[in-house]
Structure formats: C-alpha cells, structure tokens
Design a protein around this nucleic acid. Structure first.
Lengths: 235, 235
DNA sequence: ATCATGATCAATAGATATTTTGATTAGTGT
DNA sequence: ACACTAATCAAAATATCTATTGATCATGAT
C-alpha cells in the first residue's frame, strides 16, 4: 500500500462517520437518542418519518458505529453507541450555532420570545437546586423523563402542563428544561407559565448536556421499548 | 412556520456542516489547513487533486462557513474560519479512532513499527523541553513550520533529514512531530534516526493539537502564498 | 498591450443517497 | 396453526454529489 492509498483509505474511514451525520433526519434521530434508547417505531413517530425510512436511516448510523441496537420482543431498540457520539453531535451543533447566521435567524423567527427571556445555565441551576430555591420541571414526554432526568426534577410533559398548573409553586421560580438548546418544549412551557403569573425561566440547554457535564441525574427504572402496550416489566 | 418545518430547517442547517465534512478529500484539506493558511494550488498538490477539483471542494467548505479565503496576487489563500473547526474535525477523528476498528488495522498495516515505538505526549514533552533534555524537530514541510511550530523546535523536513543528521545531538533524545496522530512523517523520521543510532521518539499527535492545547508556539513571519516563485516579502 | 498563471465556472457523465412501495422475516398472542 | 405487529429488505424513481473537461476571468510579468 502506497502513501497515497493509505491516506485515501484513512480519510475515507473518517468520512464514513461524517456521512452518517450528513442528513437532517439522522441528526434528529441522534438528538432523540441522546435522550435515551428508543424503538424504531417510536423514533419514526417522533421524527415524522415512515417506519421503513427511519429504519434505513438508523442502519446508516449503525454501519458508521454511531448507534447500537438490541431486539426486545417485537421492537428493536436503538441507543447511542458511546457518549462520545453525543459529544460529536454537540460539537457539530456548536460550530453551526457559531458559524451559521441562518440558525439564529430561524430561532428568532420561530421562538420570538426567546431573546427577551433570559435562560439559566447549568451551574446556577445546580446551586439553586441545592439551595431549594427553585422548582425544576422536565417537560419532555414521560418516557424520556423515566430514562433519566435532572435529580430533583418533576415530570410535567408540556402537553399536560396547562391542566396541571395547580401542582406548581407560586412562591419559587420554576425552571423548565427539555431536550436541548433548540428544543421548544421548554420555551412553550415558560411562555404558558408566565401567562398564568408564575415566575419561570428555561434551562439554556437540555438534559443530555446536563448529564454530559456530570451534574446529578436520576433514573426511574423502566424499559424504553413499547408500542401501544404497557412497557414490559423488566429486561 | 409550523413546528415540523422549524425542526426540518434547523436540522438541515446543521446537516450542511456535516455534509461539508462528508468527503475524504475535504477532510484532508481541513487537516492541511489546520497546519496553516495555504493557496489552492498548494493544497491541490499536497492532497493529490486537480486544481479545479480542489477549488470545488474548498468552495463546499466555504459555503458551510468552515473556511475563509483571501486573494493574494495570483493566489487565493484559504484558512480555517475558526479554531472551533479544528476542534470539530478532531472530535470526528477521535470518534472514528474509538469506534472504527478498520482505522487501527490500517495504521498497523501501513506503519508496522508504530506499535513497538512508544510515543511521547504533550505534557511530558513540554516538561522535558523546559528541562532542556530533548531536541525537538519539526519534520513537516518548511512552509508549515514557518507558519507556526512548537516553541524551541528546529525545522528539518523529513525529505532533508537523511543529509542533515550531523546537525542532531547524540547525547539527548530527539522528538519528531508533524501534522497529527495519523501523519507518517514523524514515524519515518524516528525510524531513520533509530537506524542511525539516535535515540528518537515521536510526539503522539501533531502541531495543531499542541497549539489547541495552549502550549507555547512560535511563528517565523512569512506569507504562505506562493507558486513556484519566492514568497512575496510581506502582506 | 500581450502573455502566462492561478482560480473559478459551466456542462456533463458517472456514482451515491434518499424515499417510497410492496414483499418478507421474526416474534407475540390467540 | 393462524393472525398480527415491528422491522427489515429489495427494487425503482428521484435527487444530489463528484470529477473531469474546456472556457473564462483576474492578476502580475514582460
């Protein structure tokens, strides 16, 4: 093997990883998988893909060794192969945020309130959690909460928030968080809470970033795979 | 704009960056640009591409805002748009190294000696540089050395090493470095030096990683653009 | 002015990716 | 055994990417 052939093969290997990331649907799937393991059916529903298409994209990720899968009954559950895969997606996201003006424009257009509402960052939230001066709510779907959430957070999916306002304190600030910096659930939650007179802010980013930074996390032992049935009791 | 349209556009933006990385030649170009700014001609020669093809690939990187360019006389000089771009490439490379067994296999096949020769890492090298117990040589092309090198290193391009052995000490260990962990120049240099009875090792990674980690760097003021002519005296 | 050079552009052919459709496989429950 | 479901596979249509060719443009040298 010549010097050139070696280089070509080496860079081609690295490019297979980049190719796996080079599709918007696959990035969305990775973002979902960063919340926890999920079935193909579930991923397809969340990402608005047909089952066959979601399956095909997941296989591309799998061939690049970015995700792994495991059969559980009728379902196949996919998970990130390594925490480094989340780091990679996050680094890509950060470069996009820093370099592409279009991203700021999109966020400003779709979440017009975001500029006016200051977000809280991880270390301030952790200090206030310890001090007990804040109520943290996880507004992601309950399945994601069960697979891992900020220690001390309550699960109130954004879809249920309007009818569960009575559960929330009026004497303490409420902090809502969701999947990540571009997830809108927390923005919607904060907006709703403020309209009802609560003091509320969002966490600047989401649960995967909190966990990656090593802050305390809790898990409610439940298995992720299920279609319309109840989760199977254990592995 | 609906929720789905927002997500689609957002992930598509992030995917443009991944798409720019999703080609082996473009990764090689980024790796070269991590050494310093260079002309299209120079990049094409180093990466074994036609001028038109190199130009096309550089424009893909430019549209993704990963590189910037500047006209200098007849040449167009490209540079990384941001140190974060190197971080991204490096994170991608690290995930590849960790996840793809094929990469290990390739390196073991092409650089069979690498396993047997232990590399030195950055902080040990820095300590020994300060102590003066080591001679560091930069075996990259002289142009790359001039644009930035490890403080205290001498430039001896690997192509000139065989006829410049007399310049090197026999009483101290020699550490050779080049472009990065997969660059073979340092391996070739170490191999040659050992055959001639020198004590020699390679730095585990290369100059861009050294600089990114904040270790001391020196620059010899010279402009990067030139074809077959002498460099223009100043900017 | 004229020419040579570095870079880009435009057009094209060939190779890869993506999505959909319908068929098939593996596992569950009756 | 039978029906049902989740997932994958195979094939095909479409879209996108890549490399090459030759033309064009800007710049610097003569």
């Amino acid at each position: 093997m010549g010097h050139r052939a070696f280089k070509d093969r080496l860079y081609s290997e690295f490019a297979t990883i980049a190719k796996a990331l080079a599709n918007p649907h696959r990035l969305e799937l990775l973002d979902l998988l960063a919340q926890g393991a999920r079935s193909v059916e579930d991923l397809a529903r969340e990402a608005d893909l047909t089952l066959a298409n979601a399956s095909a994209h997941l296989q591309v990720l799998r061939r690049a060794r970015l995700v792994e899968r495991e059969k559980r009954g009728l379902n196949v559950v996919y998970r990130l192969a390594d925490p480094a895969v989340f780091t990679l997606w996050r680094t890509l996201r950060d470069v996009g945020t820093a370099r592409l003006a279009e991203i700021d424009r999109l966020v400003a257009t779709y979440i017009s309130e975001r500029q006016s509402l200051e977000a809280i960052d991880r270390d301030e939230l952790q200090r206030r959690l310890v001090a007990g001066s804040v109520q943290v709510i996880d507004v992601r779907p309950a399945l994601e909460y069960r697979q891992g959430h900020i220690a001390g957070a309550r699960s109130i999916p954004v879809t249920e928030l309007a009818r569960r306002l009575a559960e929330l304190p009026r004497d303490r600030e409420i902090v809502a968080y969701c999947r990540g910096p571009y997830c809108v659930y927390a923005d919607e939650a904060v907006s709703l809470l403020r309209r009802h007179g609560f003091r509320a802010r969002r966490l600047r980013d989401g649960f995967p970033e909190w966990r990656a930074a090593g802050y305390p996390v809790e898990v409610s032992g439940e298995t992720p795979a299920r279609g319309r049935h109840r989760p199977t009791p254990r592995t």
